[in-house]
Simulated assay, not measured.
Amino acid sequence: MKGMSRGLLALLFALALSACASSNRAAHNEKMGRVLPPPDTTTASGAYEGATDYRVGAQDLLEISVFGVEELKHQARVNSNGLINVPLVGSVMAGGRTIPELEQELGSRYAEGYLQNPQVSIFVKEYTSQRVTLEGAVKKPGIYPLTGRTSLLQAIAMAEGLDEFADLEGVVLFREVNGERMAAAFDVAAVRRGDMPDPQIYGDDVIVIERSGSKSAFREFLRVVPALGLFFAL
């Protein structure tokens, strides 16, 4: 499988077997968890915190304009601290805010001494901070921007769906949480039926879809994990 080392596959398999053999399943479940947690969330990360709107993140490119004032139309790249530089206003915190929130903030700043009833419009020209990678048995593997709250099924749809060789029970979501790499397996058929949650996808997530008939160690990991419904630290 592209992007996966043999060592990582062996570790995945070992973790799965360890989970099966555990004599204290309740304690293990409490330790490992039953829902893959969201990644680290910081002001500049652009992470979603339950909102449906896209939240601006570091390195996003914004196009900002003020109705009737052509001189104020410009582009601003969000820096690593979540800040943008705006003419007449100076540095403004953009990271972590939705577009309407940022438009309101800039409108208020301009209205403080520069313009009367300014109408600020912001367009995200480049979604850089929030991207998801899809690998394996999808029709168009690649890296895709997240422009709003996105679920696993929606992310797969961005790659034009699963290909004819996809294993519906062979979907693994990789995520970094508090500096630790984690993985959770999903059965897409069960998700579609509503028997399994359709998890939310975050920036930098990696989704790998295994192919039917695979005999790899990764396949053995998938054979065990969906029945457990657990996520694992790698």
Score class of each variant (00 low, 15 high):
Ala227Lys: 10
Gly170Trp: 05
Pro197Thr: 09
Asn178Gly: 12
Leu222Thr: 02
Gly213Leu: 02
Val225Met: 13
Val206Arg: 14
Ala183Ile: 08
Ser212Pro: 00
Ile209Met: 07
Glu210Asp: 14
Ala217Met: 12
Ile209Glu: 03
Ser216Thr: 15
Phe221Glu: 05
Pro199Gln: 00
Gly194Asp: 10
Gly194Gln: 12
Ile209Ala: 06
Pro199Ser: 05
Gly203Pro: 03
Met196Asp: 09
Met196Gly: 00
Lys215Leu: 09
Val224Gly: 09
Asn178Val: 09
Ala189His: 13
Ala217Pro: 02
Ala217His: 06
Val172Met: 13
Ala217Thr: 03
Arg219Ser: 10
Leu222Ile: 08
Gly203Leu: 02
Leu173Phe: 07
Pro197Met: 11
Asp167Lys: 11
Leu168Phe: 11
Gly194Phe: 09
Phe174Met: 14
Gly170His: 08
Leu168Cys: 06
Asp167Met: 12
Ser214His: 01
Val188Lys: 09
Asp204Arg: 10
Met182Ile: 09
Asn178Glu: 15
Ala189Glu: 15
Met182Ser: 15
Ser214Asp: 10
Gly179Ile: 12
Val224Glu: 04
Val171Gln: 09
Glu180Gln: 14
Val172Glu: 10
Ala189Trp: 03
Arg192Ile: 14
Asp205Ile: 01
Asp198Met: 05
Val172Gly: 05
Leu173Cys: 04
Arg223Asp: 12
Ala227Ile: 04
Leu228Gly: 03
Arg192Lys: 15
Gly179Gln: 13
Asp195Tyr: 08
Asp187His: 14
Val206Cys: 06
Phe218Asp: 01
Arg175Cys: 12
Glu169Gly: 15
Phe221Gln: 00
Asp195Ser: 14
Ala183Thr: 08
Asp187Glu: 12
Met182His: 14
Val191Thr: 07
Glu220Gln: 10
Pro226Thr: 02
Asp195Lys: 13
Phe174His: 06
Ala227Trp: 04
Met196Cys: 04
Ser216Lys: 04
Asp187Asn: 15
Ile209Trp: 01
Glu220Trp: 00
Gly213Phe: 01
Ala189Ile: 02
Asp195His: 11
Asp195Glu: 15
Ala217Ser: 05
Arg192Gly: 11
Arg181Asn: 13
Val177Pro: 01
Pro226Val: 01
Ala189Leu: 12
Gly170Glu: 11
Ile207Lys: 01
Pro226Ser: 06
Leu173Gly: 00
Leu222Gln: 00
Phe221Asp: 07
Met196Ile: 08
Phe218Met: 05
Arg193Gln: 14
Asp204Pro: 00
Gly194Pro: 06
Met196Asn: 06
Ile207Cys: 04
Ala190Cys: 07
Gly170Val: 08
Arg193Thr: 07
Phe174Glu: 07
Asn178Met: 13
Pro226Ala: 00
Pro226Gln: 02
Leu168Ile: 10
Ala184Leu: 12
Ala190Lys: 15
Val206Asn: 01
Val172Trp: 11
Val206Ser: 07
Ala217Ile: 07
Gly179Lys: 13
Leu173Asn: 00
Arg211Pro: 01
Ser216Gly: 08
Glu176Ala: 11
Leu173Ala: 04
Val225Thr: 15
Ile207Glu: 02
Glu169Ala: 13
Ile201Ser: 04
Glu210Pro: 02
Phe218Gly: 01
